[in-house]
Write a protein that binds this DNA or RNA. Structure first.
Length: 589
RNA sequence: GGGGCUGUGGUGCAGUCUGGUCUAACACGCUGGCCUGUCAAGCCAGAGAUCGCGGGUUCAAUUCCCGUCAGCCCCGCCA
């Protein structure tokens, strides 16, 4: 029997019609007489009724049904008897009175119940039986949203005149940035391909090739530790254009996201998306990817405490440090112990300590209360707009430490206190990033974005004088505190590109060896170009209201980078190693 | 490399702090029986756990200690 309808297509309009549905047994309710089966297909659930009076054979066979059996049922769509409708089901008004039942395939009892409600199964078990986990309606929905987002992106970019060009997965290791996944070359023993961390140089080469508008929905590979929002392999909507500028890329990207949100969620996102300078983001939120769904911004009180009795504050201000505060609403009743926990939290991010002021009805309570005059306190309260019952939390340190620690604390409190409205989508562009940052360990400059990032025309002369002040032409699109897309206008002149390598202390030989092919290409009439690369996994996760991108990837890895389903990674045979000219060292304890 | 949380029948959990009463509880699921309007069906009966693994302390360890493994969250890392 082949299905004539999907479960979600069955409604009252089909009353008294014969249909065939096929799917899995979600649940069986055997009354001895009547047997009810909830039949699940990839779209919905529908109730099938087996009655000994109307279909004796089918009823008899239905006794054998168990969870996850694959069946096909032929029967008549009927309106449910008055009072037995189930408003919790979309198909709750009708049911199928079975005439015939075919057990297409039996199933062992599944290790967990295939449903969204009920106890949450451990990640390990879910991934081991991922094919069962994926039967759950929410997983079906997540992957459907992912598909729709991908299709929307393809269609949108196609309409804008872009074409999708594939780039190699087996390519050259360019040991900048993340750790590469390597693939040994059998033809060239001792040599390795690397899997791309992104198709960055290939898409730039395509611009040089004269493909003015390129995109690719492409896997990228980075051998770094995994997180809830990071997998070894992830997918980017990779985009690059020639003869372009920031305005064009912003407009294109905004159009792309507007289209995706409209088509997948029916949500209209307001455009244009507002822009925020990197420095403003760091000052107000202590982060280059601010979550703007709630307040609690960082407030600078350095000037107020510059001359106060509390030496920790005044001395830091004197040393060009910063003193900043956030206000935790209605948290003045936190215990000493709870504040200690927050203090330990900021210490993880380099802060020396956390000063707290509890704003009570007619006094301010603080371990360091005695160092502050009433006037200074009044000014702090005025500046921070703290109200009675609030808790002011202050960090004093180098600006970088203040931003990092208070920014993180803000996020933690925002989460813990439930200040975040999860139904919102808050986009913003972050612009005017610095081109470089100082790498303390290596005692040299590193690219903030990547070494191919273009430079603000006005800052060009700063390159030799004060490179840390140079602003790049890169931009990030941030959604709800998550970096959703990152891109830049690139360098298209060979001499400038070489100069950047010099500043990054990549010597000529090294640059030649790693990027020589690219520097060569830049000599042959490279057009100005730029692009952006939205991360599909994070986008879909946010659209689905999900924390972990594992839930929007069909077959993800665990945090330790393994696949419980297949057992990957695994050992390989001696023959395979020999062919590749590899040997594995025993790891001794 | 580091910090935190978790690990007890198939699944989710109680018990662990304060060792003996644990012959390991409960719910779901499973097996069998009864049952013609349920939809978390109901009722009855039953099976199913060397308490992640290894070591130690103790007369005695699911419980305390050390180590280890796995999952999750995080720091570092992720141009």
């Amino acid at each position: 029997m082949k299905p004539t309808h999907q479960c979600n297509q069955i409604d009252l309009k089909l009353e008294n019609q014969e249909v065939i549905v096929a799917g899995w047994v979600q649940r069986r309710r055997d009354h001895g007489g009547l047997i009810f089966i909830d039949l699940r297909d990839s779209n919905d659930l529908v109730q099938v009724v087996f009655s000994p009076e109307t279909a004796q054979d089918a009823h008899k066979l239905a006794h054998e049904l168990r969870s996850e059996f694959v069946i096909a049922v032929q029967g008549k769509v009927s309106k449910r008897p008055e009072g037995t409708e189930n408003p919790n089901l979309t198909t709750g008004e009708i049911e199928i009175m079975a005439d015939e039942l075919e057990i297409i395939n039996r199933s062992e009892t599944p290790p967990f119940v295939i449903e969204d409600s009920g106890p949450q199964v451990s990640e390990d078990t879910k991934l081991k039986y991922r094919y069962l986990d994926l039967r759950r309606p929410s997983m079906q929905r997540n992957l459907r949203v992912r598909h729709k987002a991908t299709m929307a992106a393809r269609n949108y970019l196609d309409k804008q005149g872009f074409f999708e060009i594939e780039t190699p997965v087996l390519t050259k290791s360019t040991p900048e940035g993340a750790r590469d996944f390597l693939v040994p070359s059998r033809f060239n023993p001792g040599k390795f391909f690397a899997m791309p961390q992104s198709p960055q140089l290939f898409k730039q080469l395509l611009m040089i090739s004269g493909f003015g508008k390129y995109f690719q929905i492409v896997k990228c590979y980075r051998d770094e530790d995994l997180r809830a929002d990071r997998q070894f392999e992830f997918t980017q909507i990779d985009i690059e254009m020639s003869f372009t500028d920031e305005e064009e890329i912003f407009a294109l990207t905004e159009g792309l996201f507007a289209d995706i949100f409209q088509k997948c969620l029916g949500i209209t996102i307001p455009t244009p998306i507002k822009r925020m300078k990197y420095h403003e983001a760091m000052e107000r939120f202590g982060s280059d990817k601010p979550d703007e769904r709630f307040g609690m911004e960082l407030i600078n009180i350095s000037d107020i405490v510059a001359d106060c009795q509390f030496k920790v504050f005044s001395s830091i201000v004197a040393k060009d440090g910063q003193v900043k505060a956030i206000v935790a609403p209605k948290q003045a009743d936190l215990s000493r112990k709870q504040i200690d926990i927050l203090t330990d939290f900021v210490k993880d991010f380099g802060a020396k300590g956390l000063v707290s002021f509890k704003i009570l009805e007619d006094e301010v309570d603080s371990p360091v209360r005695k160092y502050f005059s009433d006037e200074v306190l009044k000014n702090i309260i005025e500046r921070t707009e703290a109200k009675v019952g609030d808790l002011i939390l202050i960090v004093a340190d180098k600006p970088k430490v203040v931003a990092e620690s208070l920014g993180r604390l803000r996020l933690k409190l925002g989460n813990d206190l439930g200040l975040i409205d999860e139904s919102q989508f808050k986009f913003s562009w972050i612009v005017d990033f610095p081109l470089f940052h100082y790498n303390e360990e290596e005692k040299r400059l590193d690219s903030e974005h990547h070494p191919f990032t273009g430079i603000h025309e006005k800052d060009m002369e700063l390159l030799d004088i004060d490179p840390l002040k140079v602003r790049s032409r890169s931009y990030d699109l941030v959604l709800n505190g998550s970096e959703l897309a990152s891109g830049s206008i690139r360098i298209h002149k060979q001499d400038l590109q070489e100069k950047i390598f010099r500043i990054l202390k990549i010597n000529k030989e090294e640059a030649q060896q790693k990027f020589g092919f690219f520097l060569e290409a830049l000599k042959f009439g490279a057009p100005p170009h730029g692009g952006i690369a939205p991360g599909l996994d994070r986008l879909v996760a946010i659209m689905c209201g999900i924390k972990s991108i594992r839930d929007v990837i069909a077959f993800p890895k665990t945090q330790s980078g393994t696949c419980p389903l297949t057992g990957a990674p695994s050992e390989v045979s001696e023959e395979q190693l020999k062919e590749l000219g590899l040997s594995v060292e025993e790891v001794l304890e």
